[in-house]
Amino acid sequence: MKPKRNIAGKVYLFLIFLFLYAPIIILIIYSFNESKFRTWSGFSFKWYIELFSDTKIMAALYNTILVAVVASLLSTVMGTLAAIGIHGMKKWPKRLIMDVTYLPVLNPDIVTGVSLMLLFVFLSIPTGRLTLILAHMSFCIPYVILSVLPKLKQMNPNIYHAALDLGATPMRAMWKVVLPEIMPGVITGLLMSFTLSIDDFIVSFFTTGPGVENLSILIYNAARKGVNPSINALSALMFVVIMCLLLIINKRTKTNVDIMF
């Protein structure tokens, strides 16, 4: 009985994963297709080569990485400082701020995107890389806070006091004693921000300006115009990069347990 049920379970699991991953697998397979069309005409790297010689795609890649690096670094600094501040708060203000922090996480991307666009228009900030970075920071900071806070909670609060007791100023104590203690959470927050930023399409779509495309916007625009197999190759590469980042984050959070929610 038991092995039979085991096999049925495995088949079921396989079907679910097949359903989930079939589109991506097909995408990856097609990215290696010699032909431009749906028929398979042989294995080839030519779309990948074309991809890296396409200046437009390279420009979008540059935008994506620039925005992701700047937004995730700034988010990590601000989120970490915010987490330290929230950690030191009294119970009720803390609860209030935490609810406010969760809100952007749960907010639909489309609402975040449209509202940020309206905000930038209202403040007449010219849309472009700057607004992209600001928009990405708005959804990255909560994730940094949520990954740093558990580390602060785990920390023995007396080690900060011990540093003060030994003559360190509050700034120095934070830098030399608290920061190294919460570093795993900070790094996780940084990786998560970087991943979210690369990954984002909807918010970027609403907040970028003329002529500034990141990869996801470029793919969206290209896909509307028709089939371009180098886009398959690009999507496949993005998938692999994001998956690697997620695997790293998962591994980190597993070893540090109770992160988030």
Binding site: N158, H161, A163, L164, D165, G167, A168, E181
Partner: peptide, 19 residues
């Protein structure tokens, strides 16, 4: 402030710097 006081403390549960 504590960092200017001429005293030192041995804390409950040691509070050593783990890193």
């Amino acid at each position: 402030p504590p960092y200017k006081r001429q005293l030192n403390t041995v804390f409950q549960k040691y509070a050593l710097f783990p890193h």
